[in-house]
């Protein structure tokens, strides 16, 4: 029976015109793709596609990346051909996610997706739903952190390798093989300079051109440890989605009555202190830190019992706090030690 289904699937996939990658999907991957037909929509502005929106609520609320939204309202098309008008309801700066609501939505139009609850591991096969079709992908790293230039908040990232070298991957949705949402692609690794072997991007690459050129030199191959064994028949693109904890927080917040996402914050910006700890560089007026009398120049060396060796430790410690929680922050001010109690804000 399984062989018969595989044969039928193969024939169908080969006969139906579509994205090149779709012809290479396994039966399971095709099944997931089919399952998600009523849960995703392709965002478009005039004739150009901008990314994907994923249905997360029966009320017609879609999740998308900020990249895909250029104005307060946008048109979208579901794979079954249904056209939608999506309006911006809420946006979350730290994760760059936006919440959209479809006009005249009926629950019969589609079923909301579930977030991937199971722990995603490096090496797991996943699927990326692109505006141009579906692409096979793989989780490369789940232990990365990134900073977005405009809000300068630390965010955990998953690194994903996609077999989609020539496609627009910004705003694409990534799912497990069970059809659960992992995240939405916001960034791709910059294409390295293939002739500069000392480039810091030598360990990674952006798209097919980069891969082809990188493979042309033995010197380059030595630096491609993480990517030296591509699993697919085509070249790879390295992309990033927000980590599972952040996605859970975002979806939970967007699904709440207020539609707001609550990220724990003190309202400070820190940099590494030369002598260790996180040196406070700026304090947002009226923030929890301001109210707790933290000062610019204070060096945080412990937060909620966690040792703070540098600004990264501070940002990571903050991510694990809860809004409204009271924590003790230990700082060094001039030559004095201070224990300050701060209420975590949002």
């Amino acid at each position: 029976m399984r062989t018969f289904l595989s044969a039928v699937s193969l024939v169908l996939v080969c006969l139906v015109p579509g994205h090149t990658q779709q012809k290479l999907l396994s039966l399971a991957e095709s099944a997931v793709h089919e399952k998600l037909q009523g849960s995703v929509a392709v965002l478009a502005k005039s004739t150009k596609t901008q990314g994907m929106a994923v249905l997360i609520d029966n009320g017609g609320f879609f999740l998308a990346h900020r990249l895909s939204i250029k104005s307060g309202a946008t048109t979208a098309t579901m794979p079954n051909g249904r056209s939608l008008v999506l309006r911006l309801v809420q946006q979350d700066e730290p994760s760059q996610m936006v919440l959209l609501k479809a006009d005249d939505w009926s629950p019969s139009y589609g079923a909301p997706v579930k977030l991937a609850r199971e722990a995603v591991q490096p090496g797991d096969r996943v699927l990326a739903i692109l505006p141009s079709g579906i692409a096979r992908a793989e989780i490369a790293n789940t232990n990365l952190f990134g900073v977005i230039s405009d809000n300068r908040r630390l965010i955990p990232l998953f690194e994903i390798r996609l077999e989609a070298p020539a496609d627009q991957i910004g705003g694409a949705a990534v799912f497990t093989l069970e059809g659960n949402l992992i995240g939405i692609i916001g960034a791709a690794l910059k294409q390295p300079d293939p002739y500069n072997t000392t480039s810091q991007q030598r360990v990674g690459f952006g798209n097919s051109g980069g891969v082809a050129r990188a493979r042309s030199g033995a010197t380059e191959l030595k630096g491609l440890n993480r990517f030296s064994k591509p699993f697919g028949p085509t070249a790879l693109t390295v992309a990033y989605v927000a980590g599972q904890n952040i996605m859970e927080r975002v979806v939970h917040g967007f699904a709440s009555p207020t539609r707001e996402v609550e990220h724990p914050t003190l309202g400070v910006f820190c940099r590494d202190s030369a002598r260790g700890g996180a040196l406070i560089d700026y304090i947002t007026p009226n923030s929890p830190a301001d109210k707790a009398s933290l000062k610019v120049g204070d060096i945080i060396f412990e937060l909620a019992g966690l040792p703070i060796r540098n600004q990264l430790d501070f940002a990571k410690a903050m991510m694990n706090q809860s809004v409204g929680q009271r924590v003790v922050v230990k700082v060094i001010r001039n030559k004095d030690l201070l224990n300050l109690t701060v209420t975590i804000g949002k």
Binding site: L67, I148, A188
Partner: peptide
């Protein structure tokens, strides 16, 4: 990973670069 808000025309995604440390870049929290 430093994520620049500039969009790459090839991928349609924001440009990401890898660094070993932030050193002098302040991070919010």
């Amino acid at each position: 990973i430093l994520i620049n808000t500039d969009t790459d025309t090839d991928t349609g995604a924001q440009v990401a670069t890898e660094v070993q440390s932030f050193e002098n870049i302040p991070i919010g929290g």
